[in-house]
């Protein structure tokens, strides 16, 4: 297994927010993690990224124990819901940021960034400042900045949460394409059921600090606790004209 999480736990003020986390993920796959706000998804991602420390447990990435490694040494990039583009840098410099940090030759940086701009459908926008871009474009630049440095693991914390539905659909497709193209291994956290099903090769459900990873999408769909059945019932009832007031998703 490429990523192995063993017995990770974390508490804030005596309240356990992540409880005995155990799961693994193969290389080049995406694990979608579905869960309500405050269920411990962000804390889990931050522990894996090295931005928070766990009280117990171990993290193995590519057979290497990274539990005590600093965030900058893990080659694991954490992406927020906000695009967090550096406002003092233009599109080119934002995407090239990680490459400049790694002190790559300027020629290599230019070539890589230009290829990335093409992949992101942002050719010709390289000189623009972040405040000149739309929400979708900013999020694309944010992806490009993360993927260009070839991270071992990409951690996405509701990255499309602030986008409108049309832009969100476009971004989902773009992310799928980029994942395949750059062989990205990722954990994709969302509270959107449809997005979790679309984005993940594997799906997990997080509730009150516990994560359950399903063996298959069918198992996930058939589990009444995931809310998929409720969702199907909702649309069926809507079609037949029945009352839909009591329907609840997860």
């Amino acid at each position: 297994m490429f990523l192995e999480i063993k017995n990770i736990s974390k508490s804030y003020k005596k309240e356990k927010v992540v409880k005995n986390l155990n799961f693994s993920l193969d290389a080049n796959l995406t694990l979608s993690v579905l869960g309500k706000s405050g269920c411990g998804k962000t804390t889990m991602l931050k522990i894996i990224a090295g931005l928070e420390s766990s009280e117990e447990g171990e993290i193995f990435l590519d057979a290497k124990n990274i539990t005590r490694e600093k965030a900058e040494k893990r080659n694991t990039i954490y992406l927020y819901q906000e695009d967090l583009l550096f406002p003092h840098l233009n599109v080119f410099e934002n995407i090239a940021f990680a490459l400049h940090i790694r002190k790559l030759p300027e020629k290599v940086i230019i070539t890589k960034v230009k290829t990335m701009l093409d992949n992101l459908e942002l050719s010709g926008q390289d000189h623009k400042m972040p405040n000149e871009l739309s929400g979708g474009q900013r999020q694309r630049v944010s992806f490009g900045r993360a993927i260009i440095s070839n991270p071992s693991l990409l951690l996405l914390d509701e990255p499309f949460g602030s986008l409108d539905s049309l832009t969100r659909n476009k971004m989902q497709k773009l992310f799928k394409n980029l994942s395949r193209k750059y062989n990205i291994t990722s954990i994709f956290v969302t509270h959107d059921l449809k997005e979790a099903l679309l984005m993940g090769d594997q799906i997990g459900l997080m509730k009150e600090g516990n994560l359950k990873v399903y063996d298959s999408k069918e198992e996930f769909i058939n589990d009444p606790g995931t809310g998929v059945q409720n969702e199907i019932l909702f649309w069926d009832k809507l079609k037949t004209g029945e009352s839909v007031e009591e329907n609840n998703s997860i």
Binding site: K46, A49, R74, Y78, E82, L84, F97, A98, S149
Partner: peptide
């Protein structure tokens, strides 16, 4: 968040 981002970017 910027600080954390820079750290995870290496």
């Amino acid at each position: 968040s910027y600080e954390d981002l820079v750290a995870t970017l290496g």
